[in-house]
Computed example of a mutant assay.
Amino acid sequence: MTNEEMRLLDVDGEGFPYIEAGEGAPVVFMHGALGDCRTWERQVRLLGRSARAIAYTQRYFGDAHWRPDGPPFGTRCHGEDLIGFVEALGAGPVALVAWSYAGHAAFHAIRERPELFSRALIYEPGVPSYVRDEAALARFGEDAQAMFGPIFEAAGRGDMEEAVRRLIDGSGGRAGYFEAQEERRREIEFDNMHTMPLLLAQEAPPEIGADDLAALRVPVTVMWGGATRPVFSIPSRAAAEAIGGTAHREIAGAGHLWPDEEPEAFVKAVRGWLG
């Protein structure tokens, strides 16, 4: 999809860029860090053959002209924006697909306005507030330091390009992952480099614990990769355990960036989840 195919949806006077394809029941995609609606362009095109697939750019991401006096950057802000986007879309309740950073924002929106969502699929939420096991929480902290310490170091000396590379290398699970990506993915990530300082200084996320997930009134499925690192797998498993049920799924051999690496396989999983 090209920039010419992008649309704007007015949400309380703010224009949110989005792309869509297909007809039928709406499925809304939320991107993670260093992404925007273009992150999902292949998945939207594929799923659009059987559903109305919609992906939007969250506030402060992309190249939209966001209001400088908007709310603080963080998952609370992005969860509230999700509520506003779905309301403005006027096609709810929607099925929701959220990835990584967007997972906690999705949980916040679902908890606050469950009537707007028919179901949700969260791939690897990364907030540890759902983790009850102390040993698992300690492993999460160790891996978070191993992954984010070098990112903060690069950002602290003002090298945001290197911070982007380290975030993607860390998420991909190996050095050199960023450079090995196809050009389109690197382009989108560098286009969102301006969000690195915001991500690293974001507002504290809403307090959502395991009991809150257990009380959600919307069916939520959590998926995670079998080859993903502890900073992503531990919160994912904890969220799945808290929510309960048998719909949750580990994807054999997949890592944190699996939705981008294998869009066809990811859309196949989404179709299976939609039933």
Rank of each mutant, 00 (worst) to 15 (best):
E20G: 08
R119T: 01
E115L: 02
A64M: 04
A204G: 09
N3D: 15
V220A: 06
F148D: 10
Q43W: 03
G244A: 12
T2W: 09
A120S: 14
G170A: 06
G172S: 02
G90P: 14
A214E: 09
R45W: 07
Y101R: 10
R271Q: 15
W224E: 07
G15W: 00
P26I: 01
M1P: 11
M6F: 05
P263Q: 10
L46W: 03
I83C: 03
T221M: 11
F190Q: 07
P150C: 13
G15T: 00
T195K: 04
R174M: 02
A144M: 12
F16L: 13
E179N: 06
A254T: 03
V231R: 09
T228P: 13
W273F: 14
G253I: 00
R174Q: 10
G15C: 00
G92H: 01
P71E: 05
C77Y: 07
W99D: 04
E187A: 14
F190I: 15
A240I: 08
I234S: 02
V231Q: 08
R165A: 04
R229E: 07
A210Y: 06
R42M: 14
P263M: 11
D159F: 09
R49A: 14
L257D: 06
L199D: 00
L82R: 13
R38D: 08
A239L: 05
R271Y: 04
I208L: 15
V270G: 02
C37V: 09
H31T: 11
Y177P: 03
P71N: 04
V164F: 03
P206N: 05
E182L: 09
A247R: 15
A21M: 06
R217W: 05
M223I: 02
Y130Q: 02
I83Y: 01
G158E: 12
R76H: 13
E115K: 03
S129M: 12
S236P: 07
A64H: 03
R166F: 03
R113G: 02
P114V: 03
I110V: 15
G176P: 14
R67A: 15
A146Y: 02
A120K: 08
R59K: 12
P206C: 08
R45Y: 01
D211Q: 04
P125V: 01
V267N: 07
P206E: 05
R237T: 06
P230E: 06
S171Q: 10
Q181F: 05
G141Q: 12
P197K: 03
N192A: 13
W99N: 11
R113A: 08
P26F: 04
A144E: 13
W40M: 12
R139G: 00
H256S: 11
V27K: 01
